[in-house]
């Protein structure tokens, strides 16, 4: 994978490239931050400090292959560190701070599942561990691959893959039941 051009320029002190990096990732970074802290001020502060710090340390940074994953790890660490200071919970697994839920409206629009089934899926999703929710979010919302997910969660590749598959098989029952019971209009239109 090619090194990000903007990253190279930013490391040399190019502020325009730096702003491009910011504009390119701010939406998704902010979304990720909000999953760890409902306090907008905390998320904004952490993002600001993250960018200030990488600018100040730009000469010491390596050539990053995936800038988005790098920013995600940094942001996650900062918000988790902040959470640990203000809450009295010792957590070895930082996913404990991750909050997410599926968007019922979007699923309604995009699939032909009825709202009752979607609610059941929503509840099943809530029963997954925070780590599993975290992984599903990174894969299906943020578009990271398994290797990047392992990096962001700071676990090894096999653990990430196993956790992902366990989560998916837990949710799978809901789809199997639905597909068997319903008269399915095939979603993939293919000449057979």
């Amino acid at each position: 994978m090619a090194i990000d051009q903007n990253w190279v320029l930013f490391k040399q002190g190019n502020n325009i490239a730096f702003e491009k990096i910011y504009k390119e990732h701010i939406n998704e970074l902010y979304d990720y931050g909000k999953r760890f802290s409902l306090d907008t001020n905390v998320v904004e502060d952490c993002i600001q400090n993250l960018f200030i710090d990488i600018w100040n340390n730009r000469k010491n940074l390596g050539d990053v292959e995936n800038v988005k994953a790098y920013l995600f790890i940094s942001l996650k660490r900062r918000i988790v560190r902040f959470n640990k200071k203000s809450l009295s919970v010792v957590s070895i697994d930082e996913s404990i701070y991750f909050k997410s839920e599926l968007s019922i409206e979007t699923i309604l629009v995009d699939t032909e599942m009825n709202s009752e089934k979607i609610k059941k899926l929503h509840n099943a999703y809530q029963k997954l561990s925070k780590k599993q929710q975290h992984i599903l979010y990174l894969k299906f919302f943020q578009g990271f691959n398994n290797k990047e997910i392992a990096e962001i969660l700071e676990i090894n590749y096999q653990s990430a893959r196993n956790a992902l598959n366990r989560a998916l098989s837990k949710l799978k029952t809901y789809f199997t039941i639905w597909m068997v019971l319903a008269n399915i209009n095939f979603l993939l239109k293919f000449p057979q």
Binding site: S103, I107, D110, L121, F140, L171, L187
Partner: peptide
Amino acid sequence: LIVKSLRYK
């Protein structure tokens, strides 16, 4: 179907 159902706001 599973991919389409894992949607977030």
